[in-house]
Write a protein that binds this DNA or RNA. Structure first.
Lengths: 336, 336
DNA sequence: TTGTAAGCGTTATCAT
DNA sequence: ATGATAACGCTTACAA
């Protein structure tokens, strides 16, 4: 593999000149430039960006840590990250934490060692040492799908509390009073926890007593939703509506409910969270909270790049969410 | 940021020794090692893997090029890649080609410049210059979701032709004779093309004349399937069954058919391709061809790493596929 | 506009 | 077991 030294020799110029035609072509006389360009061709020169990174101390790479690329919401946000990054000639290396703190910790270690210029993290533990260390070191990073408001950390997220509230409120407005919730394990993600708080607040605001039996925690999966809804349905006084903390759970709940002999949405109203692409293709089409995952990815990357260029005060961006009413929710059945 | 030089000075040893405690701790006396370890702590030393890569000429990074992380099948394979890579301390940088050749070309250029040790490519153009150049340069790479058999390129894929065949055969065995196909654009992916060939062959083997009006090409999307099925249904003699070249198209087709007033699966049998996680949660649950995307990702990475260590003869791996019969297909309606 | 040469943080070779 | 030092491919003052 030839280097700029070979090119320089071949073109009869110095390595500095070769470097110049690569990085600021205009700063070199056309004749010289052409000589160099030709020399590059003839010795099949390939630029070594790693060597550049070594000297400039910029790898032009950022690390992206998400729980699981398998989850369409994170895939969407990842797409947003990639597109924005690529538009700015930044590469992104991807890591999955699987919601495990130790894994997240290791990822930031590895990524920092490989000299990424910044980090995008959908964190598993907001209070963990990992983030603290990043802050202490003044390392550029921004949180994605974050629940922080204020503080020394830049972040983009949504108001999960409000999401839980408006989802529940929709159900209440349809006349439901027994409203269950299938939530992602609070120990795994605080997003789910905040949604639950919104749910409870809405119940309270409407004079509906909170019944802890109506909450079941599970993992954010199709099968989790399917199994969980059955538990709820076996209750002496089962819910007539259920709020699921993500769409996968909601999809699973639909299937589980149907297996339990219910007709949807007549016997059970279901609202999800995320608004995955497939949500409107379910039967019945899923009513859910729309979350702009792709845009969040873009925005977080934008924030990060600003931070990388000129470390400034932290910024928290809250993105809009909205209730998308489709067919999976309907009026509460008469219990006359 | 301190370097091994600082550590060496602080510990009163040479940089070589510091390097040794990092890379082969056992080769240094315990007392010395502890001195060094302590020095590292006190000056908050952070290893610079980029510098290492610069001298060893290995970045311990591979590039992964897929059409779109948004597609769950590619997300699954990406997960397989990542997990295998991580088990071997390899980082993966991700790029989306959006099925665009120019984009793919640029990605391999950028990735090679950043000195990735190998490339995993779900290619858009098997015959393009990009792959040729890679072969000429003896650069380690393997194709994912590939359709090649033989030749100088390592690859892992499935038998798309056979997939199309068994999908169609299932429909035929249910008594269908008017069998349509909604296929991903042949100009965009030859996988879809091969599936179509399997479909045609199966028809021929069963004495069913091929009707070109029964084929519609679209993009591999939900809305593509939805729109396309309507075209098919408007035919003077519409199909009683349809083979969709991926699950998204099939999901869309279900919705479109229902919107056209059909009952599923009685009025129209549908089979998909991929077996996405959500396939069994659709109503009716989708009959489809199962493709082991995650395993393919793992296998491809395994192949690549072997290639990176000891360049050898190319290997093509064909993974198993299978027909998963669920509820979206049923006997052909009587047309007495 | 172009050249000279130092320097980036590690590894690796050769001594000791 | 440890040390001294060249080398990796590039950028970047500084000089000419």
């Amino acid at each position: 593999m030839s280097t700029i030294i070979d090119v320089a020799r071949l073109a009869g110029v110095s390595t500095a000149t070769v470097s110049r035609v690569i990085n600021s072509p205009d700063s070199v006389r056309e004749a010289t430039r052409n000589k160099v360009l030709l020399a590059m061709k003839t010795c099949n020169y390939k630029y070594n960006a790693l060597a550049r990174g070594f000297v400039t101390k910029k790898s032009n790479t950022i690390g992206l840590i998400i729980p699981n690329i398998n989850n369409p919401v994170f895939a969407d946000s990842t797409l947003g990250v990639q597109e924005y990054a690529e538009e700015h000639n930044i590469k992104v290396v991807l890591g999955n934490s699987y919601y495990k703190y130790a894994q997240e910790e290791n990822l930031v270690k590895v990524l920092r060692e490989s000299q990424v210029d910044g980090l995008l993290i959908t964190t598993t533990d907001l209070k963990g040492e990992v983030l603290k260390a990043l802050v202490d070191d003044n390392f550029p990073f921004v949180l994605l799908f974050s629940t922080v408001k204020g503080g020394p950390i830049s972040a983009v997220g949504i108001d999960n509390y409000r999401g839980g509230y408006i989802a529940t409120d929709h159900l209440v407005s349809l006349g439901h009073r027994r409203i269950g919730m299938v939530a992602g394990n609070f120990s795994i993600t605080d997003r789910s926890f905040h949604r639950w708080n919104g749910y409870r607040k809405c119940l309270r605001d409407n004079g509906i007593p909170y019944d802890k039996n109506l909450l079941v925690q599970t993992d954010h999966s199709l099968s989790g939703g399917r199994d969980s809804i059955k538990k709820l349905l076996e209750l002496p006084s089962p819910p007539t509506a259920v709020f699921c903390s993500n769409d996968y759970i909601a999809f699973g709940a639909m299937k589980g409910a149907r297996e339990a002999g219910l007709a949807l949405p007549e016997d059970l109203s279901i609202v999800g969270f995320d608004d995955m692409q497939t949500a409107s293709y379910m039967v019945p089409a899923l009513t859910t909270i729309h979350q702009p995952a792709y845009e969040m990815g873009r925005r977080a990357t934008e924030l990060l790049m600003a931070l990388m260029n000129t470390p400034g005060k932290p910024v928290q961006t809250m993105m809009d969410i909205s209730l998308v009413i489709r067919e999976s929710t309907t009026s509460a059945p008469d219990r006359a």
